[in-house]
């Protein structure tokens, strides 16, 4: 579901590469934690995988069709993200001016799913993330944990092949973090998606299937 080969990235005018010739894969249904010290390039790697930053060399194959996001133009990268990738962020990033249901519907609209199927899918997913009855609520009225549940529902609603999560529990208290993480892992496994979770938390990493450690010398 995600295959990274010989991936290299150097920021303009930087003395050394952020990473050089990285290679790893995440199988379908597998959840991998990506850990490493601050500044080592975890977010840059995640951005490259999502096609938000260009890689200098290498390939990143995503989804069942194994499309190489590095070789795609900007519009095609956006289309691939819309169809095959779900995102969960530390800062939730739930749109405050749309209702909970509308927030979750965004990936469905972007992936072109017929509107008739939206409501049933959103309501089912809201029930599974523990937010039944929240469809018409506005984000500013929700707690941090509830917002992250909305974000998880949004990441899964279009049944992507790959979930990218950047510190998904970083803004939550330990008990809520635990609940949210459990929910995320459970739903990812249920959807048989692949997931790459960037985290500083050993507790989060330990609950994943595998841990990749990014160091200045590469992946360990």
């Amino acid at each position: 579901m995600l295959t990274v080969t010989d991936l290299s990235k150097r920021h303009p005018n930087a003395v050394r590469a952020v990473f050089d010739e990285l290679a790893f894969a995440v199988a379908a249904g597998e959840i991998v934690a990506l850990v490493g010290e601050s500044g080592v390039g975890k977010s840059t790697l995640l951005n490259c995988i999502a096609g938000l930053e260009p890689a200098d060399r290498g390939a990143i194959l995503i989804g069942r069709e194994a499309r190489d996001i590095v070789r795609l133009d900007e519009a095609a990268r956006a289309a691939l993200r819309a169809a095959s990738i779900g995102f969960v962020f530390q800062a939730f990033h739930v749109l405050p001016t749309l209702t909970v249901a509308q927030n979750i519907a965004v990936p469905l609209l972007l992936s072109g799913l017929a509107p008739g199927e939206h409501q049933a899918r959103i309501e089912a997913l809201l029930a599974r993330v523990g937010l039944a009855g929240f469809a018409q609520r506005w984000p500013p009225s929700l707690s941090g944990g509830e917002l992250q549940r909305v974000a998880i529902a949004r990441a899964l609603v279009h049944r992507p092949a790959l979930i990218l999560a950047d510190e998904p529990t970083g803004n939550l208290d330990p008990r809520t973090a635990d609940e949210v993480l459990a929910l995320l892992l459970e739903r990812v496994r249920e959807e048989h998606a692949s997931a790459l979770i960037v985290t500083h938390s050993q507790h989060v990493a330990q609950r994943c299937d595998r841990i990749l450690t990014l160091t200045p010398d590469g992946l360990q």
Binding site: L52, E74, A79, R81, F87, H93, L95, T97, L110
Partner: peptide, 15 residues
């Protein structure tokens, strides 16, 4: 800008 960036990340094309 953050909202538009999020939409871009979720797959809203530059166009």
């Amino acid at each position: 800008s953050t909202q538009f960036a999020l939409l871009g990340v979720l797959g809203l094309s530059p166009r």
